[in-house]
Computed example of a mutant assay.
Amino acid sequence: MEEKCPICHQISEKVKSITVKHLVSDNFLGEIVNEETYYLCMNENCDVVYYNLNNESILDKKKVKVPIWFKGDANPKYICYCNKVTEEQIINAVINQGAKNINDINKLTGAMKNGKCMLNNPLGKCCGPIVLQTIKRALQTNN
């Protein structure tokens, strides 16, 4: 069963509480329940970032420490949170420096080095697929 955001009713992604705890502003740590399953609302126009299954805790963009890359107003738009590499840096590496794959991006931007994705990425997992999507989009734009 797909979980949907209690506010916008769009599909969400499951995230571990350790990720939520690491990214929520200190003032709101008390709202995080250990071992509770959390979800990240994937709607770019919704202010909700995380919520739990019981809908007892809804954490919006104002309650997290980092901008969420796919949310419409994210600034900067980090793709690799561990190394603070932005969408703009990846696109620049493809268009202006000839990057064509993850290895090139890694060498040119430092993305995906020294990763602690479970703690730093809002999804709590490797940014590799998002780096690949960004490379493909930049390559299509450049052709």
Rank of each mutant, 00 (worst) to 15 (best):
I79D: 03
T134M: 08
M118F: 00
N96Y: 09
Q10G: 15
V20A: 10
E87I: 03
N143K: 13
N120D: 07
T141M: 15
G110E: 09
I11Q: 12
K4A: 12
N43P: 06
D26E: 14
V49Q: 04
T141K: 15
F70M: 08
Q10R: 14
M112T: 00
L119R: 10
F28G: 05
M1Y: 10
Q89H: 06
L53Y: 11
M42H: 01
Y81F: 05
E31I: 14
N83Y: 01
E31Q: 12
L29C: 09
Q10C: 14
Q10P: 08
N45F: 08
L108P: 04
I79V: 14
M112L: 11
K4Q: 11
K65I: 01
T86N: 04
I102Y: 04
D60L: 02
N43H: 11
K61D: 07
E88M: 07
P129W: 10
I130S: 14
D104T: 11
K65Y: 04
C127V: 08
Y38T: 08
N55D: 13
K125G: 00
N75Y: 06
I32E: 05
T86M: 05
K136V: 09
A99E: 08
Y50V: 08
I32N: 01
I11F: 01
L40T: 02
E31S: 09
C8I: 02
D73K: 15
M1C: 13
G98H: 12
N96T: 08
I7T: 12
L108M: 06
K77D: 03
Y50P: 10
P6C: 08
A138H: 07
C82N: 10
V33T: 12
C41D: 01
K116H: 09
N27Y: 00
I135S: 14
S17D: 12
A138W: 00
N120W: 04
K21Y: 14
P122S: 01
L29D: 10
H9G: 13
K107S: 00
P67E: 02
V64W: 03
V66L: 09
C41V: 00
L59N: 06
R137F: 04
N75P: 05
V85D: 01
I32W: 02
N103V: 03
E35Y: 11
I58V: 15
D60W: 04
E13W: 04
N96S: 06
I68A: 05
K113W: 00
Q140G: 05
Y81E: 04
G128S: 13
N52G: 04
A99H: 04
I32L: 02
C126F: 02
N43A: 13
C46R: 11
